[in-house]
Design a protein around this nucleic acid. Sequence first.
DNA 1: AATAGGCCCAACCGCGACGGT
DNA 2: AACCGTCGCGGTTGGGCCTAT
Length: 254
Amino acid sequence: MGRSPCCEKLGLKRGPWSKEEDDLLINYIKKNGHPNWRALPKLAGLLRCGKSCRLRWTNYLRPDIKRGNFTHQEEDTIIKLHQVLGNSWSAIAAKLPGRTDNEIKNIWHTRLKKKRNESQPQETPDIQSEPESSNVDIHLEEANNSKDNNSEISSPKINTEIQQQPSSSSSSEYSCSNTTATSSESRNQTMSDNLLEADDDIWSEVVWAAVDDNYRDLSLMEDNYQINSSFNDDWFWDDLFTRSNELMLELPEL
DNA sequence: AATAGGCCCAACCGCGACGGT
DNA sequence: AACCGTCGCGGTTGGGCCTAT
C-alpha cells in the first residue's frame, strides 16, 4: 500500500496549467521566491499541490529555461554525457544550461536512445541491459545528488567486484564491463562497456585519464599492497569519479 | 476523409535523501 | 535513535499532434 498521491486532497486541481495559474505562480515567486513549496500554492492563491507548482516552475516557467529544439551539438553532448553518467538526468542537465532534466529525459527516450543505437549497432547494449562478460563489475548506485550541488555533476557511489587484476599501468591493459543491478536498483547506472565503446571521444578520455591517475597512485604504493583489494575499495572508485567529474567541469562548454 | 500507430512532451507518481525535532 | 515533513530525482503515463495507409 503506497502513500496516496499528494494531489488527492479534495479540491486540488491536476492536469495542464492555465495561463492564469502560470501568472499567479510566476508573480508570487518573483515577489517572494519559493522558500517552501508546500505552503506556496495557498499563499499564491493556487488550487494546486506544492509538488505540482515546483514541477511547473522548474520544468517550464523558470526564466532561464531555453525553449525550442535541441541543436545537434546539444544532442551529441547528451549522448556523450549519458555514456558517462547514465540516467542521471539532473547531472546531465547541469551541463546543459537552460535545459531541464525532464526535457533531456524526454528527448533521450524519444530520439537520442534510438540515434545512439543506430550509430553503434549491436555493440553498445542499452545501459540497462546485461553484458556478456565482465572483468570488473561496476555498480553505479544512486548518484550523490545533493542539494548544495546544483551546478555540478555529482559523484556516483560505486560498488565493485573484481574478477581480474590489471597487469600494467596502461588503461588498455585492463578492461571492465557492467552488470545489471538487482531489481531494487532500477536507478543504478552502469558505464564501463559504454566507456570502452566511446574510447576515442573526449568523455572516455576524461574518465580513463582519471583511471590512469588513480592506478598510477596505486602503483606507487608499497610492494606488498594488493592492488586487487584497492579496486574493491569504495574509496578508489569514489576518488576516480571525483577526478573524472573535476576534469569534466574543467572542459570548455560544449 | 477516416483511422491506426507513432511521436512528443507536460505532468504525475513513488521513492530515497535530508534536515529538523 | 526514531519520526516526520519536505524536497528532488528518475520512471511512467496520458493526451494532443503528426504521418502513413
